[in-house]
Amino acid sequence: MDVVVQFAIHRLGFQPQDIVIYAWSIGGFTATWAAMSYPDISAVILDASFDDLVPLALKVMPDSWRALVTRTVRQHLNLNNAEQLCRFQGPVLLVRRTKDEIITTTVPEDIMSNRGNDLLLKLLQFRYPRVMTEEGLRAVRQWLEASSQLEEASIYSRWEVDEDWCVSVLRSYQAEHGPDFPWSVGEDMSVDGRRQLALFLARKHLHNFEATHCTPLPAQHFQMPWCL
């Protein structure tokens, strides 16, 4: 991946801030490595990717091998996407496939076992730790559990998320404290305010695509990540 970025910069003439990295599935590891190593790139889009390889490796191996599998992955194949992604300060978009049969730890229909959820939660918890408290986490998990766009919208409206207010709060914080994460926004906020911000941020960082793991991503789903 280093060669790819170097080629784009030195042979093709791109500036880092003009580069957007898109990665699918296991490519999330090299993409997050590049984002971590080239912090000036414009944005990262991760499609059907995961937070950590260990839970997915354990899924396909005998339970009696748990300790061996965990140690082997950690020492020799540690695809720690979430850890690397949290070292990137720029815009991020995650595409979650709602029928993914590869990065779920149970069955494709169990959308809450999709490790893309964990990637989102770890990113938001790092960037907005005061927002992603118990109440914020609970609200985002309810939203992630929604089985349809209608149900997603219902959860969003149930908590009366005021998007204009959310943007105003975030922009005010950024203007006063600067853009670098983690942010302490939400520290002195009501439970309702933190819940609204948590849902707003989750919706801005993750889009659903109703498909299996290997279905080609339609052109309309190639969107730039949200930027404040």
Rank of each mutant, 00 (worst) to 15 (best):
D2N: 15
D2G: 08
V4L: 15
V4G: 12
V4C: 14
V5E: 05
F7C: 07
F7I: 02
I9N: 04
I9T: 03
I9G: 07
H10T: 13
F14E: 04
D18M: 12
I19A: 03
W24C: 04
S25I: 09
S25N: 13
F29R: 02
A31W: 05
T32L: 10
W33Y: 14
A34K: 03
D40P: 01
V44N: 08
A48E: 09
S49I: 06
S49P: 07
S49V: 08
F50P: 05
D51K: 06
D51M: 02
D52Y: 05
L53C: 04
V54K: 00
A57P: 07
V60Q: 12
M61C: 12
M61Q: 09
S64K: 07
L68F: 13
T70I: 00
R71A: 14
T72H: 11
R74I: 00
R74D: 05
H76Q: 12
L77E: 11
L77Q: 09
L79P: 03
R87A: 04
F88R: 03
Q89I: 01
G90T: 02
P91N: 05
V92Q: 04
V92Y: 03
L93C: 06
R97Y: 05
R97V: 00
D100A: 03
I102D: 00
T106I: 07
P108V: 01
I111R: 11
M112T: 08
S113G: 04
N114Q: 12
R115Q: 15
G116Q: 06
D118K: 04
L119P: 09
L123T: 07
F126Y: 15
F126E: 03
R127S: 02
Y128G: 02
V131C: 03
M132F: 09
T133R: 14
E134M: 07
E135K: 10
L137S: 05
A139L: 06
V140D: 02
R141I: 03
R141T: 06
Q142H: 08
S147W: 07
Q149N: 15
E151A: 15
E151T: 14
A153G: 10
A153W: 08
S154T: 13
S157Y: 07
W159R: 11
E160C: 10
W165F: 13
C166P: 09
V167R: 14
S168M: 14
L170Q: 08
S172P: 01
A175P: 08
H177Q: 04
G178V: 09
P182Q: 05
W183G: 00
S184Y: 04
S184T: 10
G186I: 05
E187I: 01
D188I: 01
D192L: 09
G193P: 01
R195H: 03
Q196T: 00
L197I: 02
A198H: 04
F200L: 04
F200A: 01
L201S: 01
A202N: 10
R203S: 14
H207D: 11
N208G: 11
F209T: 06
F209M: 11
E210Q: 10
A211C: 04
A211V: 02
H213F: 08
C214A: 13
T215R: 06
A219P: 01
Q220C: 08
Q220L: 08
Q223V: 10
Q223W: 00
M224L: 15
C227M: 15
C227A: 13
